[in-house]
Design a protein around this nucleic acid. Structure first.
Lengths: 327, 327
DNA sequence: ATGAAAGCGCTAACAG
DNA sequence: CTGTTAGCGCTTTCAT
């Protein structure tokens, strides 16, 4: 495991020169550069990131905090983050918080102990106060989720508008009895999507029936199933349901299938996120597509800029209604 | 951002003592320890991992190489890896190779440049020669995949036996015309599972019909669909299919549904991996469960032992046939 | 039980 | 264009 010293000695130059051919080759004379490069090759020298990091006081590592790696919604985002990072010579430490404050703390400390240069938070359950405190001293951006009050820059979509578009479409194709399958109102996005839902109904003079609004804390597909089971027991049933996540929508779809009912004839369904599985169901799921890749890519670039001291602005990206067979 | 120097000065001790209360508190006198701890608290001092890493020549970072983060099969494994790592004070750098040799090279170099202490490879498409070369100088283990010839320790299941169990079960419930939906034979696991498939058939004196064996390079669900479409055009159709991945099975299931046929009456299906979505389909999927969490946990512990210089042995873990509604 | 001091591998100011 | 040198923040002998 040769060090820069060894290379320098063997090549007959100083360590500074070796360092230069590594980091700023243009300033060294071609002849010496070649000589050094040859020696590096011969010795199979690889510069130690450890030494470099200490010296430059940077780790070139970014933290990506997600609640759960098994949620396919984050897959595309992570891809975007990774590509943006690699492009700029950064690496990603992917951290699953499991919405567990203890884990969150471990990861926050990675920033404090300089193991990471910045953090992208995607966890809706993150401890607001702690995140704000962290953002005070370290580069932090939020992706997908964001904080109303705080001044942490973020990348997101317009949740209210997206929900509005989804429900307006259901109304347009003739539905008047529309249910909402939402997550818990403690989440900003849940409140925003509900607003969009209500706005679309109000606009068409449709009443909001509280029986048709289902909130769940757990976004597992079983809860989509549960919700649909309950809706189907109602004396007056809805004919369409807007679910704020594809997973919930898939659960609802399953319950409808189990009951021998038909989608979309007996019940239309719209999901949210366009996860890859939304295309594998039968029938395929109409859904709102978030530009996951772009969200990830943008937030990583944003974070890197922040690390470099370049000021950044929050960004709202466009969503898209993907019409498939469930409506 | 105080350093250890600042803490030492303020506490009126040497940096060595501060370092001791951090790493080996028992050797320092209670009174001084308390004094130092109080100062650390006051200054909100966090030791720099950068300095420590350079000094100890360790990064306490593990690389986890997976082909694709969107493949839910890896989700459980990653969880296991993460927990084993955290337990021992390591962090995980999750790297998606996308089966791209260029990316792979970047990640291998992370080891060479000392940014990581070891690597867990889960990519079946990994460049064997390169991996063996790397394993020569650095701690490497394989998880799920492994290499016949090489001497890299691994954690895996018995693929042949698992396939054998799956097919034997299909035979037991009355099927004699069984198709195999396999990935490419260049993969060891594909060859092994095919062997198990054939063994079960042979044992019951059933012939292996080449028309009922479908190989695909791409494990996307569309290819499961394609495969089933082709099987359904055959003059003599199988009555059951064993797919080597749940995703392929789900694709096949969808095609059967589209054709108005019934699972399992017209066609029984067994998948492989027990991904979370295998439970969300209608009907739910019978599948072979790999102990993903345990595989991840075990391989991470194995790697850490290797890093510490403790000799390790490869391990074969048990699979399980999960019987659900598709058979 | 504690302190002094060396040094991990590298980069960057400064001098030449 | 190149070399000398200081020092990033920490751990770890070696003394005391």
């Amino acid at each position: 495991m040769p060090t820069i010293q060894v290379v320098a000695k063997k090549a007959g130059v100083s360590v500074a020169t070796v360092s230069r051919v590594l980091n700023n080759p243009s300033v060294v004379k071609e002849a010496t550069r070649l000589k050094v490069e040859r020696t590096i090759e011969e010795l199979k020298y690889e510069p130690s990131v450890l030494g470099r990091n200490l010296r430059t006081a940077k780790s070139r590592i970014l933290l990506a905090l997600i609640p759960s790696i098994s949620n396919p919604f984050y897959t595309e985002i992570i891809n975007g983050i990774e590509n943006a990072a690699i492009e700029q010579g950064y690496n990603i430490l992917l951290c699953e918080t499991g919405s567990d404050p203890k884990r969150e703390k471990i990861y926050f400390n990675l920033l404090r102990s300089r193991l990471a240069d910045g953090i992208i938070s995607m966890d809706p359950t993150v401890d607001r106060a702690k995140l704000l405190e962290l953002a005070d001293k370290y580069p932090v951006v939020q992706c997908s989720e964001y904080d109303e009050g705080g001044n942490i820059s973020y990348v997101s979509i317009n949740n209210e508008l997206a929900a509005y578009h989804a429900v307006r479409y259901l109304i347009k194709i003739g539905h008047t009895k529309i249910a909402l399958l939402n997550s818990h109102n403690k989440f900003l996005y849940a409140r925003e999507r509900r607003q969009g839902f209500e706005k679309a109904l109000n606009e068409s003079n449709l009443a909001v029936n509280p029986d048709w609004i289902y909130n769940t804390d757990d976004l597992g597909f079983e809860h989509g199933q549960l919700a649909m089971r309950q809706l189907l027991t109602l004396p007056e049933k809805p004919t369409a349901v807007f679910a704020v996540s594809d997973i919930l929508a898939i659960g609802a779809l399953k319950e409808i299938n189990i009951n021998g009912l038909h989608v979309p004839n007996d019940m239309a369904i719209i999901g949210f996120d366009k996860i890859s599985f939304s295309n594998m169901t039968h029938p395929t799921l109409t859904t709102i597509s978030q530009p996951g890749y772009k969200m990830g890519f943008t937030s990583a670039k944003m974070l890197i800029n922040k690390i470099k001291g370049i000021p950044v602005d929050s960004i709202i990206l466009d969503h898209e209604l993907v019409i498939r067979d469930s409506t």
